[in-house]
Amino acid sequence: MPTKTPQRIAAFFVVILIFGIGVYILSDYFRFNREVTVSDVIEGFDGSDLNNSFYQLDKYILSPSKHAEAAQNATAYLGSSDPEILFAAVYLIVNTGDALYAPYLVPLLSHDDVLLRTVVAGRLIGWGEMASIPVLIESLDSDLMLPYADPPRRLSELAQEALPYYTKQDYISRNEWQQWWSQVKEQLIWNASTQQYGL
């Protein structure tokens, strides 16, 4: 009936409005409650969207109960030829794994990318892998910056932190560390209980 047209139009818009609100609420709910798997996080790592990429990685890092799941699943990506995926996998293991994962990372100490192998070495030195020490020494006089760091950090900072801490030596220059390494590398022993290298 013509006289009812305005009411029908109003009713139509009300229905559309209610529908729209419903869709919004549902999409919002699913967006914030969806489960993100380790694979999602690693494969979704996007260097052009760092905030979200690291945020997704933090979903596992900031939740210690998920560490074992994260580290274990990340190992499947350590052979990736995609540098972003490889970095995400390494980063996740570095921050959720333990010394049991050292064998997975050791091969990466000879990776072509000096940034990646230094990040790996920075973690492995604390897991008792002596092969990490020369990699860290190599980075000491590097002017490169750590990838994606916020705030920007020198690559050499990892070595400057780790070498004195785990070896109890206080050399400054790369040459000094190199000399020390040449002298002790055959005798150096990792003491897991003290978390120290010694002779």
Partner: peptide
């Protein structure tokens, strides 16, 4: 974290 371990804060 341990010394040498790389974590990116925000």
């Amino acid at each position: 974290s341990d010394p040498g371990q790389y974590y990116r804060g925000w």
